[in-house]
Amino acid sequence: MSKRRAVVGVMGAGEAATAEGLALAEELGECISSRGWVLLTGGRPAGVMAAASRGAARVEGHLVVGVLPDEGNGEERQSTAVLDLAVFTGMGKARNVINVLSADVVVICGGGGPGTASEAAHAINAGRPLILLAVPPVWRDFFCSLGKGVESASDVEECCRLIEARLRRV
């Protein structure tokens, strides 16, 4: 029986993502896949979710999972084209809890809005390792003050080293 692949959740801004955040997310997705980890995102075709998925899809043997807020019916069915598995929850923003609880490690990439902040808070509440990649200083200071298990990285290589170290402890 083979060992389960580690799942790394990447969360961040959707439509409001910055060019820097998108570039980091794409590089991070590729780094995650190249290490054989599963990438989990919010699955929508926007922002950090789509960029990380694109990066992961460049690696042979990748597995990209998207946990989506809608039911996947008709015109609501909006997912990133490169998903290998789309999980349609019909739960709206409540799906953020599923994103966090399904990940072995959660990475917030470049900051974001209230949804991203809720995912960071859920990770802390659930005791999931949380890595903040190139987030605004106010985010870093706030989330690091809330609990143990929160680390900060300034670039993708440092982030992947932190993920690897956290996965060894899980």
Results as ranks from 00 to 15, higher is better:
residue 3 K to M: 14
residue 6 A to R: 04
residue 8 V to Q: 01
residue 8 V to Y: 07
residue 12 G to D: 07
residue 12 G to H: 05
residue 13 A to I: 09
residue 14 G to A: 15
residue 15 E to K: 14
residue 18 T to V: 10
residue 23 A to W: 01
residue 23 A to V: 02
residue 24 L to A: 01
residue 27 E to R: 14
residue 31 C to N: 14
residue 34 S to E: 15
residue 36 G to I: 12
residue 37 W to D: 13
residue 40 L to K: 07
residue 49 M to N: 00
residue 52 A to W: 01
residue 56 A to P: 04
residue 56 A to R: 04
residue 57 A to D: 08
residue 58 R to F: 02
residue 64 V to L: 05
residue 67 V to R: 07
residue 70 D to R: 08
residue 70 D to I: 00
residue 71 E to S: 11
residue 72 G to S: 08
residue 75 E to R: 11
residue 75 E to M: 06
residue 77 R to G: 11
residue 79 S to I: 03
residue 84 D to R: 03
residue 89 T to H: 07
residue 89 T to R: 06
residue 89 T to D: 09
residue 91 M to T: 04
residue 94 A to H: 10
residue 94 A to I: 07
residue 96 N to M: 02
residue 98 I to R: 06
residue 103 A to P: 13
residue 103 A to Y: 08
residue 107 V to C: 04
residue 108 I to D: 07
residue 110 G to F: 05
residue 111 G to K: 04
residue 112 G to E: 10
residue 112 G to C: 08
residue 112 G to I: 09
residue 112 G to D: 13
residue 113 G to T: 07
residue 117 A to K: 06
residue 124 I to K: 05
residue 124 I to E: 06
residue 130 L to F: 06
residue 130 L to Y: 12
residue 132 L to M: 14
residue 134 A to P: 09
residue 134 A to E: 13
residue 135 V to H: 06
residue 135 V to Q: 08
residue 137 P to R: 10
residue 138 V to P: 00
residue 139 W to N: 13
residue 144 C to W: 10
residue 148 K to L: 09
residue 149 G to I: 12
residue 151 E to S: 15
residue 159 C to N: 13
residue 160 C to D: 00
residue 161 R to A: 08
residue 163 I to L: 10
residue 163 I to S: 01
residue 165 A to N: 10
residue 167 L to E: 03
residue 168 R to P: 00
residue 170 V to G: 12
